[in-house]
């Protein structure tokens, strides 16, 4: 019987204390943002899908189309194709396709690139209606005019 009443008393006290916590939270400013209308800044180290770095001097990318990134990719989601222009000596990048539906953002491609031609983009929270929206043409996205 004693146990019953002490439970009742302690229980009531604990519940009131708990309500005190929620009341305090109710009166404090909200911690969330109204998402579609407001967004928070993307952190500096965030990894989006890969993109080609554009050299400011030359205005072009550095890719030598060696295909190391495509070979090391765990998910095999990169396709690199180089073509030798007529009369040219070196291969030039003709196609750089990323299948983002399979990418796991591990960053292996960025690490292995011998000429550091790749980096992570800042595209956050990608969502789409079709699968094709995630087939990213990295070369076209870089917007390099040959």
């Amino acid at each position: 019987m004693n146990q019953y009443f002490s439970d009742l008393l302690n229980g009531a006290r604990s519940l009131i204390e708990g309500f005190g916590v929620t009341l305090k939270a109710l009166l404090s400013p909200p911690v969330t943002v109204q998402y579609p209308r407001e967004t928070i800044p993307v952190s500096a180290g965030y990894r989006g899908h890969i993109e080609l770095i554009i050299d400011e001097e030359s205005g072009s990318h550095r890719c030598i189309s060696c295909g190391t990134c495509a070979r090391t990719c765990p998910s095999r989601c990169i396709e690199v194709k180089g073509e030798k222009p007529e009369g040219g000596k070196r291969k030039e990048l003709a196609r750089f396709q990323l299948d983002f539906t399979r990418c796991s953002l591990c960053g292996t491609c960025v690490e292995v690139c011998p000429v550091t031609a790749l980096r992570f983009s800042r595209v956050y929270g990608q969502a789409g209606y079709t699968r094709e929206e995630f087939m990213i043409d990295v070369l076209k996205r870089a917007g390099v005019q040959k």
């Binding site: 965030y46 953002l105 960053g107």
Partner: peptide, 19 residues
């Protein structure tokens, strides 16, 4: 996220150190 690049599926460690 700032350190590893992602919020949940971190891929941060490599053999011989961190990224």
């Amino acid at each position: 996220e700032n350190v590893t690049g992602s919020r949940l599926t971190h891929c941060y460690f490599r053999a011989g150190g961190v990224v």
